[in-house]
Design a protein around this nucleic acid. Structure first.
Lengths: 142, 142
DNA sequence: GAAGCATAATTGTATATACAACTAACATTC
DNA sequence: GAATGTTAGTTGTATATACAATTATGCTTC
């Protein structure tokens, strides 16, 4: 697949998007046991680890736009996993018992996802790639 | 931003998606002069280079699902950039004059995008990263 | 040459995400 | 203490993308 014309595969926009799509699909498969798409599971994991975070904080942690966090939190509140508390102009997000109970399962799916790509890429190579990709994201961030 | 908890940034799902989102935004900015989002511009570039491709071929080149290609081509046909010709059970996609005329501009925006991230990451590092990311995408592809 | 299988493309519907515009609360300054 | 600016969050709307189901065509085999 791809790259017989030797131009696309030298484009980081193209390659990074291709990789992200593949990992998103893998993530959806591996997170199926928790009954939530990976982005929601990540949000719960984040709030479980940092109860009382504000949307702004979450958006920094997860490198997402604030409006995206609003959307995700909204749905998880409707589904009974999170609770929002207004305090002045800030909002604090808290996990419910339901979210806490799910935490071990989320973490085990997360490990399964990790193991799956490590098996295909190799332990060393995948660790290096992940670090390089993350570093590039930081360097390019506006 | 991100990664003060030292867990997320070791997750390729998370890092790859973060990088892809940043590059998508950069792409949107750099491709603004052609008046099309980068994914459409890429499609035109591909069809200009390979007139008569089938959607299946394009979906392989661009590493996209066939249904996504249908959607993209549809819009570009409506906008007068592409033309579909049925031949038996296959479809062949051709550029119109409008698409061919746009080609140099698309390529110059593409170069601008390239230059922009190279400036931030360095020539060597970005070439290596792009190659590694692309190779990983191939290795993980189902 | 009809019945069933295989392949190509499309459509209906859903997720993930963002930007720009807006609202609400707070801070500053005169 | 009213006018102005600033920050936090939300909402309206749009893009990018996919999966599963469907349609349309062609291929095989008996």
């Amino acid at each position: 697949m791809g790259c017989d014309q030797s131009t696309y595969c030298r484009c980081l926009y193209y390659s990074a998007n291709a990789l992200a799509r593949i990992l998103t699909r893998m993530g959806e498969e591996e997170f199926a046991p928790v009954g939530l798409p990976p982005s929601y599971a990540f949000l719960l994991m984040n709030v479980n680890a940092h109860p009382g975070s504000t949307p702004t904080e979450v958006s920094h942690h997860m490198m997402l736009a604030p409006s995206t966090v609003t959307r995700l939190v909204e749905k998880m509140e409707d589904a009974g996993y999170l609770r929002r508390k207004r305090e002045g102009k800030e909002i604090h997000i808290f996990p419910t018992a339901k979210s806490r109970r799910l935490d071990p399962k989320i973490k085990s799916c997360w490990r399964a996802l990790h193991d799956r790509y490590v098996k295909l890429l190799g332990k060393e190579a995948s660790a290096r790639l992940t670090a390089d990709v993350f570093e590039a994201a930081l360097a390019l961030e506006p």
